[in-house]
Amino acid sequence: MQYMILFTEPQTHFDMRNNPAEAPGYWGAWNAYIGAMAQAGVILNGDGLHGPHTAVTVRVRDGLRQVQDGPYADTKEQLGGYFVIEVADLDAALEWAARSPSAAYGSVEVRPVLPPMSGGAA
């Protein structure tokens, strides 16, 4: 089964990325986590994302394009990265979610990936 795990983080932790005192610990935790997933062979793909201040949100309403700086929703936690993993079942996916650094300070969402649509590009 394929699951996407989405990591959300509060601004305090996005700020750690650029703080020389805190960045090594922040990235070290993610490196260890991603290393453990790689070692277990569950990663299909995934990326970290730049912080929410780099986001641009686009909507088209009544034929008008609306472009807005910032993420689509103003919430305390913002998407920081994602992985698509291949594991036996939801329980295994939740286990990986719980181990992620952001489980302890942000939150992690787990969703099953839809199978490719029939007739779509293979």
Partner: peptide, 14 residues
């Protein structure tokens, strides 16, 4: 040890 840390859920243990 890095793999162990990556597999650890408890921040205190990490």
């Amino acid at each position: 040890l890095d793999i162990a840390i990556g597999l650890t859920e408890d921040p205190a243990l990490q």
